[in-house]
């Protein structure tokens, strides 16, 4: 088992290496002079020269890539072209709101979606099940910012239960922090809930047909015990897999959600970086988010060992 854990952890290294190589070389694959690409249309020759110096374009590609990776391994993501500040510092300033939003959404989505999926599978073929399936298709179709605006309109503008936008750091207290996160998390979690609930339903339908469920019913176990202890535990592997894969949706969605709810997080930083063509910042953000994504899916893989003792690689 330890060998598997070590092998699985080592397997993330080449994946991250490819991500890094891709993110780094994108700038050079794009047509035209990289410095001019970054500088944009209204750049003066001085601007382009300054950017050329920042990027160190006079040295060979592999040397630059090697240096860049070396610096990243030492938590140095380079310097923002627009602000002149280290990318690491810019990211550190903005990381709390984004990670708060993502973690709250993740927990909220799992707590809501799994029981819905279990219920739909238990009542398969009934009105409840059909209503849920309709909700799932709906959930996949309504983009995250649309959900965000609708929720904000109803609960913030009309009912005035929650703030329309903004963010309060967690250091100001749990409730003020939470109050600002409820609507964004609900908006961001919408598609994620549809995704997790649907895979839960599918996995549960499969498990509920197994003989040991019949046995459990025959020996008179309560339905709740059967569903949540016996069935759900055996349906866990695909559910956990989809939770891990769905984090990509959370990351992409967080950028937009922050924009709708005016949350000063990494999404805001991403948008500013695009508008200013601040490519070092974009590189840092893509790398960071990909790393989080790979890390979460690594944890999912390791969770298999706990969830299904039969899995031994």
């Amino acid at each position: 088992m330890l060998a598997y854990v070590v092998r699985r952890i080592l397997a993330t290294v080449p994946v991250m290496a490819i991500v890094a190589l891709f993110v780094f070389s994108l700038l050079y694959i794009a047509p035209g002079d990289p410095a001019a690409v970054i500088a944009g249309d209204q750049a003066t020759p001085q601007d382009i020269e300054r950017i050329r110096a920042t990027l160190g374009l006079d040295r060979p590609f592999l040397v630059r890539f090697g240096e860049w990776v070396w610096n990243i391994l030492h938590a140095d993501f380079g310097t923002s072209i627009f602000t002149g500040l280290p990318v690491t510092q810019l990211i550190a300033q903005r990381i709390e709101p984004t990670f708060s939003l993502m973690i709250v959404t993740l927990i909220f989505a799992i707590v809501v979606a799994v029981p819905i999926g279990v219920l739909a599978a238990w009542k398969a073929g009934t009105v409840i099940d059909r209503a849920f399936m309709a909700f799932a298709v709906f959930g996949f179709s309504v983009p995250v910012f649309v959900v965000g605006y609708v929720l904000a309109y109803i609960f913030a503008l009309q009912l005035e239960w929650l703030p329309v936008q903004g963010y309060t750091p967690i250091s100001a207290g749990i409730w003020p922090w939470m109050k600002n996160l409820i609507l964004p998390a609900a908006a961001l979690g919408f598609i994620y809930i549809a995704l997790i609930a649907r895979i839960t339903r599918t996995a549960m339908l499969e498990v509920l047909q197994q003989d040991y469920i019949k046995t459990a019913r025959a020996k008179g176990l309560g339905e709740g015990r059967i569903l949540f202890l016996h069935a759900l535990k055996n349906a866990a592997v695909p559910i956990v897999t989809v939770i891990g894969i769905g984090v990509a949706l959370l990351i992409g969605g967080a950028v937009v959600t922050e924009s709708v709810f005016a949350i000063p997080g990494l999404g805001r930083l991403t948008i500013d970086a695009i508008l200013r063509r601040d490519y070092p910042v974009i590189q840092g953000l893509v790398l960071l988010f990909s790393f989080v994504y790979v890390l979460i899916n690594l944890m999912v893989d390791l969770a298999y060992i706990v969830l299904d003792p039969r899995i031994r690689y």
């Binding site: 994946v15 490819i18 690409v37 990351i251 992409g252 695009i274 490519y279 974009i282 994504y293």
Partner: peptide, 23 residues
């Protein structure tokens, strides 16, 4: 497939954003 694995670990919207930032 190793290359695709790498690309797949970049969330698609973020990848599209990075590409749009260059063009």
């Amino acid at each position: 497939m190793r290359f695709m694995d790498g690309l797949m670990s970049i969330p698609p919207i973020l990848l599209a954003i990075a590409l749009m930032a260059l063009t």
